[in-house]
Amino acid sequence: MSTTDILFYFLSALAIFSAIMVLVSRNPVHSVLWLILVFFAISGHYILLNAQFLAIVNLIVYAGAIMVLFLFVIMLMNLNAETEPQKHMWMKLAGVISGGCFLMVLVSLVRQATDMQNKSVLMKTGDIGLIKNLGKALFSDYVVPFEISSVLFLSAMVGAVVIGKKD
């Protein structure tokens, strides 16, 4: 077992464990922290896949900006384990079972997928994940969606104003 494998398994286990902890934590603040851990694990995966740019962005944008925003909101609302509402047991069970079913059917589909047999992921090498290459592609081939997504931000901005501003 190579280092890559070990790292893969470790990061995977970490991601899944942290993800589960996001769910089971009663305290929303803990959930946020566990989620940040998931993001870290995923960033680790990115690095493993030699997608450095995304790894960084993931950390900065997600783990950094977005999760801080979440944390900020939760703190603002003063949410904690005591105030955290809990679903009825049966509803939780139903949720877990149906989510599990969803996983099962998808996994069984993947297992049967013949075209995915014998395909492997290029680990650690490959330079498409480098900032230079991504940047080149982003500002040449993908300039249209890039520009258009500015509209998205504009509307999000307007939205934040409309919704957030006190009348």
């Binding site: 890559t4 769910l23 909101v73 509402p85 939780k92 989510g99 998808l106 992921v121």
Partner: peptide, 28 residues
Amino acid sequence: MPIQYYIYLCLTLFSIGIIGVLTRRNAI
């Protein structure tokens, strides 16, 4: 690393996300 591993991992995470949506009441 076979692609299946990643698929399984991601599907699992995805499903955990779904389960979370289904089981939690806190909108955040």
